[in-house]
Design a binder for these strands. Structure first.
Lengths: 149, 149
DNA sequence: CCTATACATTTGTATATACAACAGTTGTAT
DNA sequence: ATACAACTGTTGTATATACAAATGTATAGG
């Protein structure tokens, strides 16, 4: 599959632009595949990310600042993102007793249960998107990605 | 710079997940750099993309369907995107005389002028983001990107 | 012609995200 | 103690995007 074909242009694109456009195109493919995998569960990629961070805390609560720090895509409004997980019953939120400015966010039992199911779907989606890449090629990508700033 | 450090996790991430997370992180870097370059002009990446497509038409008008087909990131609502460019005076829109369902969209003189300036800023942003990559490395990326589906 | 269907775009509505102003809490220096 | 600045999160508002229903137009079949 050819970049020029996808965006339907006759001219040849300069290498730098071509690389970046290609990057954005693949990004669309990836995010679409991952969000589609999450759709049945009614959560967004960002919400999934937060649930995973919370599970990684092993019972220790996380503050909003902690969540934001660890999210793959930082966002300006983690409050409302957590609100949505609250509504679904996947997390709980309390005021931190030792510092009442902070909040303590934990994943609930329901959250853990649904997250296990999501993991399976996500893993399938990952396999799907990456099915044509060998381990070596992925390693190579990771090395090249490190050169971006 | 290390993925595990960026998202602040102690555990090692499996290769597939790591590659995709890394991809999303680099995508954030790229889109931020490009949008920042466009910020002074008050247009989004998508709007910039439309202006470039229109310039590529060489006076020939484009319909909404044509624009959508050629955009890097397809979107569900090109009408309103064009509305914004209209407001800024960068494009004009008429009903197509031969088929009144269609619209004919053209870039204006002002649009062409501002687009030339944007090109310079965008080119700088591209150079900046890609400064640590050789031509060969970019070629390699393009080859690897072709393996995604 | 008349009707049904497909087409191209627009509009309504819900949801998502960005950014800045705000409010309450804490720590520190006088 | 008091005042002030820094910290943490919340809220308001504008803008962006997704999805589906609605509008107006063209085309094909009887």
């Amino acid at each position: 599959m050819n970049v020029e074909d996808i965006i339907k242009t006759e001219k040849e694109i300069p290498l730098k632009s071509r690389t970046l456009i290609h990057f954005l195109l693949v990004n669309n493919t990836i995010t679409e595949a991952l969000s589609t995998a999450l759709k049945p569960y009614g959560v967004s990629l960002q919400q999934f990310n937060v649930l995973r961070i919370l599970r990684g805390q092993n019972e220790k609560p996380a503050s909003l600042a902690t969540l934001n720090e660890r999210m793959v895509t930082k966002m300006s409004n983690t409050t409302r993102l957590v609100d949505k997980l609250l509504l679904k019953g996947y997390v709980e939120r309390k005021v931190c007793p030792s510092n009442r400015r902070k909040v303590e966010i934990r994943i609930t039992k329901e959250g853990l249960l649904i997250l296990e199911k999501m993991d399976i779907s996500m893993s399938e989606a990952e396999d799907d998107v990456l099915q044509n890449l060998s381990d070596q090629e992925m390693e190579q990508l990771n090395i090249l990605f490190n050169k971006f700033e």
